[in-house]
Design a protein around this nucleic acid. Sequence first.
DNA 1: TTTAGCAGGGAATAATTATTCCCCCACTGA
DNA 2: TCAGTGGGGGAATAATTATTCCCTGCTAAA
Lengths: 118, 118
Amino acid sequence: MYERKIPEDLECGINISMKVLSGKWKPCIIDGINKGIRRPSELHAAIDVAAPRVINMQLRELEAYGLICKKIYPGLPLRVEYYLTELGESTLPIIQALDQWGNENREHVRKIVLQLQE
Amino acid sequence: MYERKIPEDLECGINISMKVLSGKWKPCIIDGINKGIRRPSELHAAIDVAAPRVINMQLRELEAYGLICKKIYPGLPLRVEYYLTELGESTLPIIQALDQWGNENREHVRKIVLQLQE
DNA sequence: TTTAGCAGGGAATAATTATTCCCCCACTGA
DNA sequence: TCAGTGGGGGAATAATTATTCCCTGCTAAA
């Protein structure tokens, strides 16, 4: 396993949450699964700006942290679905707060991003 | 200004919020300022696991996004204080949700982090 | 006149994360 | 037999972020 060079601070609650949720697409994935987008190929299609590989990696991480669980249906064609665990569901207030704030401040943030990049 | 190579997705509310709040110490800084830790040197002392330079950079970003404002008091000794703007205050529900989830799940997350690193 | 406290930034480098490219397996239908 | 679908991973590389090192300027106190 990869070993971090810089020790992490898991004292502060905020950092613990950020550790689990940070990752470019993790909150989106949780949101998607919560909305019923459960199959990998559906998630890839829904978050099409992200490379499929990245989504797979983040799914594995979310599974490792126990926020989602993976159900493999026997038989063919292959069918895999991800579900939120109870722990995963307990992050929904965070995800919803992020979503709401972002939607309310979309234009403001966009303006500043453009300014900073010009 | 630095120009990103990979365009960002500012469609989704979640990503907009993450854009503004992601940064290893940004949520901690907002939390700290909210708790009354307003001066740079105090923030450095309070978040002593972070290099002061990083905190300064993140303060500048938070200021650029309009989440905090900087008050420079005239006269000497030098005295600078940061305050949350209204917009900054509007992120507090997110910060509080992060803090709460992290505190409730500290041991669980710690266990898994250790497992992954062994 | 040196030292310390306070606020801060430039440049280089290290560390971490995301992305791309190309591969695997099993099956179905043409 | 070939192409396509569904699920997935290894390795290398690019991109982004954090960190370190060292510097500036000011004043007050020793």
